[in-house]
Design a protein around this nucleic acid. Sequence first.
DNA 1: CAGGCACTGTTATTTTTTTCACAACACCTA
DNA 2: TAGGTGTTGTGAAAAAAATAACAGTGCCTG
Lengths: 205, 205
Amino acid sequence: MISEKIVERLSLYRWLLETRLENEVSNLFSYQLASMACVSPAQIRRDLMTIGYSGSPGKGYLVADLAKSIGKELDGAKPSKVAVVGMGNLGRALVSFISDRRSHLQIVATFDTDSTKYGRVICGCRCYAQNELEKIIKLEGITVAILTLPSDAAQAVADRLEKAGVTGILNYAPVPLKVSKKVYLENRDVTAALEKVAYFAREGD
Amino acid sequence: MISEKIVERLSLYRWLLETRLENEVSNLFSYQLASMACVSPAQIRRDLMTIGYSGSPGKGYLVADLAKSIGKELDGAKPSKVAVVGMGNLGRALVSFISDRRSHLQIVATFDTDSTKYGRVICGCRCYAQNELEKIIKLEGITVAILTLPSDAAQAVADRLEKAGVTGILNYAPVPLKVSKKVYLENRDVTAALEKVAYFAREGD
DNA sequence: CAGGCACTGTTATTTTTTTCACAACACCTA
DNA sequence: TAGGTGTTGTGAAAAAAATAACAGTGCCTG
Ligand SMILES: NC(=O)c1ccc[n+]([C@@H]2O[C@H](COP(=O)([O-])OP(=O)(O)OC[C@H]3O[C@@H](n4cnc5c(N)ncnc54)[C@H](O)[C@@H]3O)[C@@H](O)[C@H]2O)c1
Ligand SMILES: NC(=O)c1ccc[n+]([C@@H]2O[C@H](COP(=O)([O-])OP(=O)(O)OC[C@H]3O[C@@H](n4cnc5c(N)ncnc54)[C@H](O)[C@@H]3O)[C@@H](O)[C@H]2O)c1
């Protein structure tokens, strides 16, 4: 089990590696990756140690190979299936953004209460009515959900998702969700992020 | 100077306090706030110590008062002025979401290269053409910028923002920006967040 | 008013995370 | 082959963050 912080950084590293790969770069030194990721070279080496990856002194790391090794650690044996609940502005933006970025993260269903939305394919993904939620989650084996719906509906939906078998929730609604220990919850509150940036912009970091 | 993590939590606390205030709750114990914020009671007390706030044993914390004290620490003397660059799906969603949430964070300008967008008021905020960027930033005294534009334009815009005097950037474009030490940069990559959630959803946290 | 209760503020401790420092190693050059 | 250069992997040290522990305090009860 890798710590939260390291997972986050590994994800970043992989993504940096992939963009480097597109530019035909085949190997990198720790200090190069470090400067891209805005961390120290030692941090890079230590993180790679935790996934048991070895480069070679003088040669550094093989970009493609390292990216694959990170994938072996972060990605499951099978792709994770993802649902998006609430196909408003934010939901649609997310779906169109994510769908063609990572093959091991598949958005396989979206949900909405609005009858002008469900029953159709939106941004390349089928949108279902809210009352089909449990059925589809189980049928598809969805384990991860993204919440982009109004705050007042979020808790009830989270409860239903959990009962249906979802074990990870990425929540964009500005509301403090309560979930059981079984479920991994990550909140993405824009306001908090902006407040933080404003604070350090002012205080001069 | 407060550490990054503490600022993040304080922002969360304040927001929880405010929603409690709406429900007419006038005081709270550390363990109550802790359970809402998903942290330990000791953590709460320690965080409040760093901003020099004192509750009273038996009574706990005065909700309104504490919220104000956090504000005194996090918010500047004057509101921070914010610009949003790139008024696509995500930009519009963010502007409409934020604009009526925090009085000390004012979105005073948005920018776009699309001539069907600039020159108009979008989501309650004036949208300017890209070439007016420096002028407006300086004129308004904007210090914080949110980047919601295509990746390939992000670095160039970031450079211009920095030169114009912006000291904090909240970046949504999936690209590793390089900025000088003067600028506080926060990246919000959806993919990384989702990968993290998927990982811990699988590994069972 | 005395005593018990429940919570805070703060110090001490533990745990986690990051950085440092350096031996070991590959590779290049002559 | 020998020596120099530059990078890795990792144990040790340092720093930061979280947790625990507890004395001190207001408050209630009888
Ligand atoms: N807009 C942003 O940038 C932003 C940022 C952070 C958080 N948020 C939050 O994300 C949420 C969505 O934002 P938005 O701008 O997309 O709003 P929106 O109103 O455009 O979209 C909300 C969607 O959710 C649907 N919905 C309502 N109740 C539902 C339910 N019970 N189950 C399923 N779907 C339901 C609505 O039909 C609508 O399509 C809000 O809670 C908002 O506060 C938004
Ligand atoms: N959509 C998401 O949920 C999401 C999530 C994370 C990151 N992102 C990233 O955020 C960015 C925006 O996403 P979107 O869905 O809003 O895309 P979009 O195409 O709807 O919006 C992009 C906007 O930026 C404008 N633009 C282009 N070049 C510009 C420039 N040089 N200066 C100013 N404006 C410019 C375009 O005119 C357009 O209005 C993209 O980089 C995307 O990868 C999106």
